[in-house]
Amino acid sequence: MAVVGYARVSSTGQDLATQIEKLKAAGATKIFEEKQSGTDKGRPKLRECLNYLRDEGDTLLVTKLDRLARSAAHLHEIVEGLNAKGVGFKVLDDQSLDTTSRTGKLVFGILASIAEFETALRKERQMEGIAKAKAEGRTLGGRPVTLDHDLIRSLKAEGRSVRQIAKEAGCSPSAVQKVLSN
């Protein structure tokens, strides 16, 4: 049964010493240290730490929740992976977040439900925004149209070839054909 700590600061100017001291005082025998922004998805030491924790009864310690996860959903993903391996999770500065106890599991379950609810709300708002944009006739995604459709049509009416129109309009022949086919 290993007690493993994870310490992270956002920039190279910050110091890990306080976190490491707290983790050691709480019984961490191995500590993974990282100087990287929490929003960075490629945190190699976090990945290494999570892979190291593999035995039932192991525990991951962090000093504060924001040292580990980018969001509630990210936290839920991490702790779900730990639970699947039988690994506990504790936040030293928040005693209620301790999946090695019944109360801690309850608190975490509530947090997970809130994260799921937030995700559903974001998706709902996104879908409303898309529906509103469609109703207003705005196109969604892609590059804004920069072709002058009227110019292309008038050049075609003058009898110019697709290649000549493309050269004058500053676009590809396939773009000209697309405008003319609509």
Rank of each mutant, 00 (worst) to 15 (best):
A2R: 14
V3T: 14
V4D: 09
G5V: 14
G5W: 01
G5D: 06
Y6F: 08
Y6D: 13
V9P: 15
S10Q: 13
S11M: 09
G13E: 14
G13Q: 08
Q14Y: 09
L16Y: 14
A17F: 06
A17C: 03
A17Q: 09
T18D: 05
Q19S: 04
Q19H: 03
K22G: 00
K24C: 00
A25G: 00
A26K: 01
G27R: 03
A28L: 02
A28S: 06
I31T: 02
K35C: 12
Q36W: 05
Q36G: 08
Q36H: 03
S37V: 02
T39N: 06
G42R: 09
K45S: 10
K45E: 07
E48D: 13
L50F: 02
N51L: 09
E56I: 00
L60K: 10
L60M: 12
L61C: 10
V62K: 00
V62I: 11
T63R: 01
L65D: 14
L65F: 02
R67H: 05
R67E: 00
L68F: 01
L68A: 09
S71F: 02
A72G: 10
H74G: 07
L75T: 05
I78T: 08
V79K: 05
L82A: 05
A84N: 06
K85S: 03
G86E: 03
V87A: 07
F89C: 00
K90S: 07
D93T: 03
D94G: 02
L97M: 08
S101D: 10
S101K: 06
R102I: 15
R102Q: 11
T103V: 14
L106H: 10
L106W: 12
G109I: 10
L111R: 04
I114F: 12
I114Y: 08
I114S: 04
A115M: 01
E116D: 02
E116W: 04
F117W: 07
T119Y: 05
A120E: 14
L121K: 00
R122L: 12
R125D: 05
E128K: 13
E128C: 05
I130K: 15
A131R: 15
K132R: 12
K132Q: 10
K132T: 07
A133Q: 06
K134L: 11
G137H: 04
R138S: 09
R143V: 12
H149V: 13
L151H: 10
L151I: 10
L151Q: 15
S154P: 13
L155E: 07
K156Y: 12
G159P: 13
G159S: 06
G159W: 04
R160F: 10
R160T: 05
S161N: 03
Q164L: 07
Q164H: 14
K167P: 15
E168M: 15
A169V: 04
G170Q: 07
S172G: 08
P173L: 04
P173C: 04
A175V: 12
K178V: 10
V179F: 04
V179W: 05
S181E: 14
N182W: 06
